[in-house]
Amino acid sequence: MKKFTVLLMIITFLLCSCQANEKVNTNSKENTSSQKKTQTEDLSSSKENETELIIPKTPLSNELNQLFEQGLEVYRWFNISIMGDGQGKPVIKGELTYYPVNNERFPTYESWYQYINSVFSKEMIDHYLSKNYYINIKGQLYGVMADRGGNIFYKSHKYELVSQTENKVELKIIGIYNEGTGEEDYYKEYTTIFEKQNGKWIITQFEFWL
């Protein structure tokens, strides 16, 4: 009887040890999986940050630097990524399909129109609007869904203040590009012009480097 009791105790001890080892192994696998997941998320976040376009500050005054950033924003709306996001009920006009622009900054077409006119000259705005990427439907801003890629050879850019007077400033943007495969960098020049009209600065020429 004593031998049976001792044998039973040994078997119980061995079973408990196996269960403990399995639990430790399971926790170890879960921790490893969690670490891998965190590393993957960090890598993904890092890659997203790498693709962000970093815009260095221009050698302009704070007022003109802010206007330059607004000009970049508006230029993108017409030439890089149209504001229509495909949400909401579409409206077909001719060969184009428009979607409502869901942007809290511009609850109406007029609010958007006033903003872009505070950045670019009327001649520039008329030219951009002639592309028919945006329309006014019952007072609301609608846009098509369209995007284009940037210059894949772009590396960076720098600025040069060409001229500055009381009513006009010319800024040169020097784009730096490289096609890889051991090639040397090459450069392209672009011009942005600011003019003061009726006591207010606006952009009358804007060339983009991407």
Rank of each mutant, 00 (worst) to 15 (best):
D42P: 00
D42I: 02
D42S: 04
D42K: 10
D42C: 00
D42Y: 00
L43D: 08
L43G: 03
S44L: 11
S44V: 07
S44I: 10
S45W: 02
S45N: 15
S46K: 09
S46T: 08
S46F: 13
S46V: 01
S46M: 10
K47H: 12
E48W: 03
E48D: 07
E48Y: 11
N49L: 11
N49Y: 08
N49Q: 11
E50V: 04
E50I: 04
E50C: 00
E50L: 08
T51M: 10
T51S: 04
E52C: 00
E52P: 00
E52K: 10
E52D: 04
E52R: 06
E52L: 12
L53Y: 04
L53V: 10
L53D: 02
L53N: 01
I54T: 14
I54V: 15
I54N: 12
I54P: 01
I54G: 01
I54Q: 08
I55Q: 13
I55V: 15
K57E: 15
K57H: 13
K57I: 15
K57C: 10
K57Y: 08
K57P: 06
T58Y: 05
T58P: 06
T58I: 07
T58E: 11
P59H: 11
P59A: 12
P59C: 13
P59G: 11
L60C: 09
L60Q: 02
S61V: 10
E63W: 07
E63Q: 14
E63P: 04
E63F: 06
E63L: 13
E63D: 15
L64D: 04
L64F: 05
L64I: 06
N65T: 11
N65F: 14
N65I: 08
L67W: 03
L67R: 01
L67Q: 03
L67P: 04
L67C: 01
F68G: 04
F68T: 02
F68M: 09
E69W: 00
Q70C: 10
Q70I: 00
Q70E: 14
G71F: 10
G71Q: 01
G71M: 05
G71E: 04
G71R: 04
G71N: 02
G71I: 06
L72T: 07
E73I: 11
E73R: 09
E73G: 01
E73Q: 12
E73V: 08
E73M: 14
E73T: 14
E73W: 10
E73Y: 13
V74N: 07
V74A: 06
V74S: 11
V74M: 05
V74K: 08
Y75A: 06
R76D: 09
R76F: 00
R76G: 13
R76Y: 01
R76K: 13
R76I: 00
R76W: 02
W77M: 08
W77Q: 03
F78C: 09
N79I: 05
N79C: 08
I80F: 09
I80K: 14
S81E: 15
S81C: 13
I82A: 15
I82N: 15
I82S: 15
G84H: 06
D85S: 10
D85K: 11
G86P: 05
G86W: 02
G86V: 01
G86C: 02
Q87T: 05
Q87M: 08
Q87L: 07
Q87D: 01
Q87K: 15
G88V: 02
G88M: 02
K89R: 12
K89W: 00
K89V: 07
P90E: 03
P90K: 06
V91C: 03
V91W: 03
